[in-house]
Design a protein around this nucleic acid. Sequence first.
RNA 1: GCGAAAGUGGCGGAACUGGUAGACGCGCUGGACUUAGAAUCCAGUGGCCGAAAGGUUGUAGGGGUUCGAGUCCCCUCUUUCGCACCA
Length: 827
Amino acid sequence: MEYPFRKIETKWQKIWEKNRTFYVDMDDPREKFYLLSMFPYPSGVLHMGHVSNYSIADAIARYKIMNGYKVLQPMGYDSFGMPAENCAIENHSHPEITTHENIDKMRKQFKMVGFGYDWDREVITCDADYYKWNQWFFLKMYEMGLVYKKSSYVNWCPSCQTVLANEQAEGGICWRCDSRVEQKEIEQWFIKITDYAEELLDHSKLNNWPQRVITMQKNWIGKSYGTQIIFKMVDEDIEIPVFTTRPDTIFGCTYMVLAAEHPLVEDFLQDNPREDEIRKFINGVINEDKIERTAEDTEKIGMFTGKYVVNPVNCEKIPIWIGNYVVMDYGTGAVMCVPAHDQRDFEFAQKYKLPIRIVIQNPDKTLELNSMKEAYVDEGILVNSSPFNEMDNRKAIQKITEWMEEKGYGYKTVIYRLRDWGISRQRYWGTPIPIVYCDECGAVTVPEDDLPVRLPKNVAVGKTRKNPLLSVPEFLNTTCPKCGGPAQRETDTMDTFFDSSWYYARFCDANNNNVPFEKAKANYWLPVDQYIGGIEHACMHLLYARFFHKFMRDIGLVVTDEPFSNLLTQGMVTKDGAKMSKSKGNTVDPQEYIDRFGSDTLRVFMLFASPPEKDVEWNDEGVKGAFRFLNRIWMLFKEKQAFLKSIPKSYTKEVEMPSYAKDLRYSTHFTIKKVTEDIHERMQFNTAIAAIMEHLNNISAFQCDESSEKIIQAVYYEAIAALPKLLQPFAPHLSEEIWAMLGNQTSILETSWITYDDKYLIKDQTTYVIQINGKLRSKIVVGLDTPKKEVEKIARADEKVLKYTEGKEIIKIIIIPKKLVNIVIKD
RNA sequence: GCGAAAGUGGCGGAACUGGUAGACGCGCUGGACUUAGAAUCCAGUGGCCGAAAGGUUGUAGGGGUUCGAGUCCCCUCUUUCGCACCA
């Protein structure tokens, strides 16, 4: 027989809604707890990954509620972006229609799973009342000097005449028409996230972030200390600065390499007889995949520009090359090359027969130029570097920099790998960037009062080439806010990371039409006490959001420095070892399982299958196992309902009881302790559920009926009565139902979390494991407080120990209290 | 390629601080119930040797530290995530 999960689940979902259990406001005197899961892209169907992610959050929410918190758990939809636009193209529909249909479907599903959301705060990023504030923030950033325009490269399909996302240009081939993708330089809007690089490196206010995320962010920002060295061109009044972390090798610099994108490259081509050849080379490099291009094992190729610079420290004339292994995104786009002490430079110099000069000598084994097979990158003593010869190279880094600063050759500097945030997208389904181009006034921001700049609806999605918004004259043509003359709107839209960078703050005051959110409300709820989402967001989303928060602080909207004080990065749901995806055809529809087994079963399976940080491998049989467990609970309550009502609920008097009853009482209190600690301290739900299963096994094995002694009945009642409380985070509907079956009139969520009593966790005996030379040989059971000496005596007298130690010399005995005895003997 | 992680039975996982490896669940095997199946219940279940007691081996592979290593250190391999226009 199956328990009536459908009836139970709809019943309690209705009661929670009627009681407004999950709706919160500031007036409520309970302490706040803001719990947030990364909001989904509304694909229209709930994905297993959503169920997994949101089941984790909901478990925490329910636990926190029962611990006296008012939990703000909102939900929304990250509904701008490429997939909606693509879907509209395929289905000849409009993103606005499909997106809202999808949102309605997903909301319905969320409700069917019974997640405890405050639906009054729902946020939909593609609605004008949300994206209006994206535009408003853009204007504020503009005022702050954080916004600028610069040219940069995009993937361009010459055949489709459109810009492609990286995923649409994989392998340098257009996903639609298989044309070769080109790199096209266009003007785009950037946000100066690098202004905050230093502060973003400070994770000290994030008490409970996974170390790996912090490390990944640090590496992403990539701060390095170094020296900017200024090289002057021969016969021309042009300076080329380079950044190096190894100024100690400057005397060994024998050539310079510029990135193919370096602005000077174009100038160098003007009077160059090899212009065509070089231009062809540059185009080839620029269109190469960036990751491959900078990979260490990629062949280094280059071309001589015909130009020279002077190495300031020794006045040597050195050639300027263009190379594929230098990128414009890092440093100055130009590097000083020291082939003797940098592997990439070494390979390049060998290939093109460029001079190599040793300037750091290996103190252990003298380097010979002729026999060098690779660059010497380790420490050593400076040579060929007068006046710094014989100096330790590590000391020379600082000395040479100081010397260069004195001479004006260069200066100490810090650079970051982090680049400014390019927010321009040449697409339709995103927030219009509130800029107007006027022939007279140039780029002008749209005045605050004119916001939102609405995304026009009448776009033939997919039918346009270039920017879709260019094809809507009513949108495009406008008047200049400054001079009133004719002007055109910016047709780029914003990166959707912009939407998701501040949505957590909007949830604090989701329906405000006058401001993005009221400061008082944001500062009441923020920071998010627990944020939950995938590890794939470690660098980008989480850095953008941290940046945005600091920016909002600087314009006086929030008072904290960080948006998310605790972070949990959950794993993904896999099947056959791979991430579930449509393209792999290994998806499983949660709805099927909700219909067949109920939402509680799905939750329990998800939470039981692995710890939240790890991936969950989908397993049909495992789901049935979870269902079986919940059925066993249900049957227990159904069968014992009348009996439980008839027996004593507690034992006040300390009556001696048989050991099997003590064991059950121990199980009850131990399980409460285990579940509480697993949720509270470790957020490890799989072991918490395992503990409940074990406890259920103990209850099942326990003999108790009408004829049992009162005290036995009371112990039995206590053991069973713990179940609804312990199950609330994992199987909330069933928990409520069995709570009601015990005769309770109100929702279990209105009651407190269950506590345990330490005194029932004390055992009067303890087991020592006995090892001989580290191998398990025997066990002894002794009184709890048996002194070490006594334990040793008992251990030595143990029959099996005697067998192994007979005639052998005992070297030492290690005793770990309440754990083990290790007897070390001579073999 | 670079950066970050992970690797434990047939499977998902447990072992939290260096101290009994394999909790709990799935699967499998045997049994009970049943006309039969499903469901449920009971017992067993890392490998090898053994009827058993017990022994031996075992946490991706190789080395090391330690009385003792899944856990700490070094090297190698494999897998996953990210690499800036997927969200």
